[in-house]
Design a protein around this nucleic acid. Structure first.
Lengths: 375, 375
DNA sequence: GCAAAAGTGTTTCCCCTACACCCATGG
DNA sequence: CCATGGGTGTAGGGGAAACACTTTTGC
């Protein structure tokens, strides 16, 4: 009755399809993007939110899926299958080091087609997926903003939205104690580049309750100081939105915003109320994005733009350089800053450490009241 | 070519055995124990350390495996299969909440028998597995110390030693930010019980480099203060052992102590040198264990014993109670301390929070020099 | 010159550790 | 009455956040 004591060939024991799915992440401008494909099947496999069961429905042009597929050979390791599928469908070729396993997804009903499929999910990183979409199946592959693909009217097939959210949640955890952030950077990078990675991953949009609140507050006060008026208004909207929805894009909940009202809030909110919140949030973020897009278009080489969500640059650089083996200075090398102006920055390359000690804590506490003696 | 575009019934795509394995953890006295079974097959499936390939060899009485087995039905969820297998083989019945998925293990060669098996591993918790070994297959099930089962002469079948180490590593990570520690406690518990859980899980034996060093130092200084002489000697041995081996039971490395010498140490160490280190460590830990065993036998009701590895009780209680929603006081209830002496302790039950905010950090830094103004 | 970014110096203040102290119990 | 464990009070030191300031670039 156990796989230890059973005859593995017992015909009564079912065999399963084993697949892999890849959450390939990259940072474009100020938002996290994920690689998705449009399947060429006329039917999409969409999960019904109330039953949790997937069924085949007519495909809409806004239906996406993660790159992935079945393990093809008896002697193909899971991680190699993931690399192969990613390459086949997007043209991106990565080494084993660039993939991290997230877990297995094998719920009954996650795949409506015949048989039962257990899928093993991986996250994959690259700074700049330079030659994507060159693969054979790649015609319909693209990178898309995570906040966009998770929201209406887009739909993700199977349980892929859950996989994306859990993947990001895991990445956030890894950011503190492992050098995973460097995988989003080029080989040579500045402290500013690195900081930008942390800023994006820890952005409220990819964050859970407490952190979201913390950051919204920080954003507001930052902006109040710099005096941006229109921007502050938008951020206050975001802040209120977060306060109302409380969990926002809670990465751990089974569905986006499903947990709305489940944390002690009066849970009388209807789903129309929920989607209203999503809409607000979407508007705000997309607004920011368009703004940064405009800036970046003016400076096409700029990898970052002027989204006013920022960590303290001075102290971040001290933290990062204090961690033994995290990054190492490249002597006598600098790069002028992305915006063209400002002092050229020191270049670094990745160090030898596999673990960050001390961990790189992005912010310890919500900077409570900014009560400082008025000089 | 992808599971999205493929015909799932394509006969050229292989199907696999899908199994589950359960790492059922409990704390006995001062050591972490894991449930293992002795399979009744005359052959054991043991992985060759150099090739990483498992093969069937004559069974020794010191060969163990994790409880687990194949997913039996088309409509059985992975977590339910894990619960079923655990119940069948050990008699332990748990709810879904008590299992956490660790990941999928599907390396080629991990199972020498026919076909290919992908196994999904779970950790399971219980304070006191009160009625274990009542199940049908349970004759050969037992709990065994983790430090013992991972060392000579014991052998773990398949890749189960790797699974155990990765499971513990994951548990340690979860201890900081989730209320997972409460799963090792009874329904009603004292702060002392809770602290004991943290002490055991963060024990150097289940720890990686930096943490191990930190704790060894702390142990030494603690003991130096209390003046224990014989004990201090043993701890210095442990400390030296750690310094020499550097990674000790590195939970993330593929094999116990495989990473020895891989962190900048002169890697000339032979494997006999490695096993010497293991032996030392084993001696020290088993020594401690026997000592605590003796104490516990005198006080059979005592869930904890007097292992001198301890967090600061006073500050731990403040930290734990400061975390919102972590634990809640049970009014007007106390329990006299385990040793019989001392003031009765306040009882708590688990709170509502799913995340710990702020995280429960066991110790921030290795208390560098204990330089305090000599009063 | 001016704005913007990099990065170092410096100050302030909060939090965490450490220790003292008191309480309640059993022997 | 002493030893032991539970728990609160509190001081002070370390460290991170906040702020100041210099340097270097583009316009």
């Amino acid at each position: 009755m156990t796989h230890q004591t059973d005859n593995p060939d017992d015909p009564k024991i079912p065999r399963f399809h084993v697949a892999v799915d890849v959450v390939a992440l990259t940072i474009k401008r100020n938002l996290l993007q994920v690689a998705v494909v449009r399947r060429d099947n006329p039917m999409s496999c969409i999960i019904d939110k109330s039953t949790g069961i997937a069924s085949e429905v007519p495909r809409k042009p806004t239906d996406y899926a993660l790159p992935g597929g079945q393990v093809k050979w008896q002697n193909e390791n899971l991680i190699d299958a993931a690399r192969r599928e990613l390459a086949e469908e997007t043209g991106i070729e990565l080494s084993r080091d660039d993939l991290v396993q997230i877990g297995a997804y094998g719920d009954v009903g996650r795949d409506p087609r015949s048989g039962r499929t257990v899928s093993v999910a991986f996250v994959a990183f690259n700074a700049e997926f330079a030659t994507p979409f060159a693969g054979s199946d790649a015609a319909s592959a693209q990178f898309i903003d995570v906040v966009e693909v998770l929201a209406e009217p887009n739909r993700l097939e199977f349980d892929h939205s859950r996989i994306i959210r859990e993947a990001i949640s895991r990445v956030r955890d890894l950011m503190e104690r492992t050098p995973i952030a460097l995988k989003f950077c080029e080989e040579e990078f500045t402290l500013s580049d690195l900081r930008h990675v942390y800023e994006v991953i820890f952005h409220a949009a990819y964050n859970e309750d407490a952190d979201a609140l913390r950051y919204a507050d920080r954003i507001r006060s930052d902006d109040a100081l710099t005096g941006g008026r229109e921007f502050e208004e938008r951020m206050q909207l975001l802040s209120r939105t977060i306060l109302e929805s409380k969990t926002m894009f809670s990465m751990d909940s089974p569905e986006p915003l499903r947990s709305l009202g489940s944390v002690g809030f009066s849970s009388k909110r209807t789903s129309s109320r929920e989607s209203e919140v999503v809409d607000k949030l979407q508007r705000v973020l997309k607004d920011e994005y368009r703004r940064s897009e405009a800036v970046s278009t003016r400076n096409p080489d700029s990898a970052r733009a002027n989204l006013k969500i920022s960590l303290d640059a001075a102290n971040f650089s001290r933290k990062a350089t204090a961690i033994e083996g995290f990054i190492e200075e490249i002597p006598e090398s600098t790069r002028s800053s992305a915006s063209g102006t400002g002092k050229p920055a020191q270049l670094y390359r990745k160090g030898k450490a596999k673990k960050l000690d001390p961990p790189l804590v992005v912010q310890r506490r919500p900077t409570k009241p900014a009560k400082r003696p008025a000089k």
